[in-house]
C-alpha cells in the first residue's frame, strides 16, 4: 500500500510523457474498475447485513424461549398458574409473562387478518420467558413442567434458530467470497488491459530500453497509469454503489430481510476501503504484467 501511495504522490508526468496514451484501454479500465467497485459495495453490504442478522438472531433467540400450554379449556387457568409458579422458582430466568389476547391476535394477524375472533378459538396459552446471561437448565425445566403442568411444552427455539443462524452465516461467507472473486476479476481485467497497452507500445518499450531505461522506469509509466485508472474508476463505482445502497428501503418499513441490506454507523466506512484496495490490485497486476513482458526484451 505504501508503494501505491508513493507512486500516486510522485511526479510521474515525465514518465507518463514517454509512453503515448493507450486509447480505448483507458476508459475500459476505468469503466471496469467502476463496475467492479459498484458490485463490491453490494457484496460488502450483503456480508455486513447478513453478519448483523446472524448476530441478532443468534443473540436474541438464544436468550428467549416460549412455553406453550395445550389443555382443555377448564384446565387452562390451573395449568397456566402452575407453569408461572414453576418459572418463579426456576433459576436462570430473568423475566416471564403470559401473553394476553391482544398479543395472541397480533401474532396471528399476518396469517388470518385483523378481525379474527381469538376468544372463540381453542388456542394454546403462550408464556414468553427471557433467560439470564447464565441461562436456564432446559432439561430440568422440562421435567418440572411435565410434573406440574402436563399440557406445557418448552420451546427454546433451538430447532429453528440453528438453521436460520447457519443460513445467515453462509450468506455472510458468500458475500466475502464475492468480494474475493470481484477482486480477482478486477486483477484479471486490469492485467489484460495492461498487457494490451504493453503490446501496443512494444516499439516504445524497445526504444526506451535501447536508450538506457531501466525496467522499473518503463514499468512505472504503465503501473502509475493503470493504478490511477483503477483508483478513479473504483472511487466512482464506490460512490455510486453507496448512493444505491443508501436509497434502498429502510428495514423497518417493510420488515423483510433484503430491505435490511445496507450499512449502519461506522459500517459506512468499510466501502471507503474499496478504491485503495482496487488501486493496490491494479498496481500489483500491472507491475507483474509489465515486468513479465520486459523480461522478453533485452
Amino acid at each position: 500500500m505504501r508503494a501505491v501511495l508513493a507512486l500516486i504522490r510522485a511526479d510521474g508526468r515525465g514518465v507518463d510523457r514517454v509512453v503515448p496514451p493507450t486509447g480505448h484501454t483507458a476508459w475500459l479500465t476505468v469503466l471496469s474498475a467502476a463496475a467492479m467497485a459498484f458490485l463490491a459495495v453490494f457484496a460488502l453490504a450483503l456480508a455486513l447485513a447478513t453478519g448483523r442478522l446472524a448476530d441478532r438472531w443468534s443473540d436474541a433467540l438464544a436468550r428467549s424461549a416460549t412455553i406453550r400450554i395445550s389443555a382443555p379449556v377448564d384446565q387452562m387457568p390451573t395449568q397456566t398458574r402452575a407453569v408461572l409458579e414453576v418459572l418463579a422458582t426456576t433459576p436462570g430466568i430473568a423475566d416471564y409473562r403470559a401473553l394476553d389476547e391482544d398479543e395472541m391476535r397480533a401474532l396471528l394477524d399476518p396469517w388470518f387478518g385483523p378481525d379474527l375472533p381469538v376468544e372463540t378459538l381453542p388456542l394454546p396459552q403462550l408464556i414468553a420467558l427471557t433467560e439470564t446471561a447464565e441461562g436456564v437448565d432446559g432439561e430440568g425445566l422440562r421435567l418440572r413442567l411435565a410434573a406440574e403442568a402436563p399440557g406445557a411444552v418448552l420451546d427454546d427455539h433451538t430447532r429453528w434458530r440453528r438453521p436460520l443462524v447457519s443460513a445467515a452465516e453462509r450468506l455472510r461467507f458468500l458475500g466475502l467470497i464475492s468480494l474475493v472473486l470481484i477482486g480477482g476479476a478486477t486483477a484479471g481485467m486490469i492485467t489484460l488491459a495492461a498487457q494490451a497497452a504493453l503490446a501496443a507500445n512494444g516499439q516504445v518499450i524497445r526504444v526506451l530500453r535501447l536508450v538506457g531505461a531501466r525496467d522499473s522506469y518503463i514499468a512505472r509509466a504503465f503501473v502509475r497509469r493503470f493504478t490511477l485508472r483503477g483508483l478513479s474508476g473504483a472511487a466512482l463505482g464506490t460512490v455510486l454503489g453507496m448512493i444505491a445502497v443508501a436509497l434502498l428501503p429502510e428495514a423497518d418499513a417493510a420488515g423483510g430481510f433484503l430491505t435490511g441490506l445496507g450499512f449502519e454507523g461506522a459500517g459506512w466506512l468499510w466501502p471507503m476501503m474499496i478504491p485503495p484496495m482496487a488501486a493496490a490490485v491494479a498496481f500489483a497486476a500491472t507491475r507483474a504484467a509489465a515486468l513479465r513482458m520486459l523480461r522478453g526484451i533485452r
Binding site: V18, P20, Q203, V204, R206, V207, R209, L210, V211, G212, A213, R214, D215, S216, L294, R298
Partner: peptide
C-alpha cells in the same frame, strides 16, 4: 538488466532505422 541499462548510457547507438518515439 539494470547494469545493461546503465551500460547503454555509456554507449551511444545510431540505429539503421533511427527508432524514435513518434509522439
Amino acid at each position: 538488466r539494470d547494469d545493461i541499462a546503465a551500460l547503454r548510457g555509456r554507449i551511444g547507438v545510431v540505429h539503421q532505422d533511427c527508432q524514435f518515439l513518434d509522439h
